[in-house]
Simulated assay, not measured.
Amino acid sequence: MFRPVLLLTLAAVMAAGTAVADVYKYKDEKGNIQYTDKPPSLPAERLNVQSQRTDVVAAQERSQAAVQSANSKPTGNSTPEQKAAAETTAKDKADRCIKARERYDRYMNSPKLYEQGKDGERRYLTDAELDAARASAKASMDVMCQ
Rank of each mutant, 00 (worst) to 15 (best):
D22S: 13
E87M: 08
C145K: 01
K112E: 11
E87I: 02
L10A: 13
M141C: 10
F2I: 08
K93A: 14
K99S: 07
A100S: 08
Q50W: 12
V57G: 11
V23P: 03
R3E: 12
Q50P: 03
P111W: 07
D142C: 04
S78R: 13
R53L: 11
A90G: 04
F2P: 00
V57M: 10
P111T: 14
V67N: 08
P40C: 15
R46T: 09
A59K: 14
C145I: 02
I33P: 00
Q60L: 13
E115P: 00
D131A: 15
T79M: 03
L6Y: 06
N71P: 01
A100T: 03
M108Q: 12
L10K: 11
G117A: 13
V56S: 06
D95E: 13
L7S: 09
Q34L: 07
A100F: 01
G120Q: 02
Q68S: 08
K112L: 05
Y35I: 04
Q52W: 09
A128S: 11
K30W: 07
Q50A: 14
T126S: 15
K93S: 12
N77H: 09
K93F: 04
Y104L: 14
A86G: 04
K112G: 01
A84L: 07
P39A: 15
A128F: 05
T89V: 11
K112W: 01
T36K: 01
K91N: 11
A100Q: 02
A128P: 00
A94Y: 04
D37Q: 15
K91A: 11
P111Q: 10
R53K: 15
E129K: 04
D131T: 14
G76E: 05
V5P: 00
I33C: 03
N71Y: 09
E115S: 09
D95R: 12
P40G: 15
L47P: 02
K138E: 07
Y35E: 04
V67L: 09
T54Y: 09
R101G: 00
Y26S: 05
K138S: 07
V23E: 07
P40T: 15
T54V: 15
K27Y: 12
L6E: 13
Y24K: 09
A21D: 05
A44Y: 12
E115R: 09
T18Q: 14
R123W: 08
D22K: 14
Q68R: 10
G76H: 05
M14Y: 09
G31H: 11
V143C: 02
L125D: 00
V23C: 09
G117F: 01
C145W: 01
L47R: 11
S140A: 14
S51K: 06
A58V: 13
K138F: 08
S41W: 09
R101W: 00
K91F: 03
I98Y: 08
E87Y: 01
R134Y: 01
V143I: 08
R103P: 01
T89K: 05
T9D: 13
Y35H: 12
K99G: 00
K138Y: 11
R101C: 00
E81C: 02
S136R: 02
L113T: 05
R122W: 07
K91S: 06
S69P: 00
D119E: 08
T126V: 11
L7P: 00
A65H: 04
L130S: 01
A12H: 13
R106Y: 08
Y124E: 03
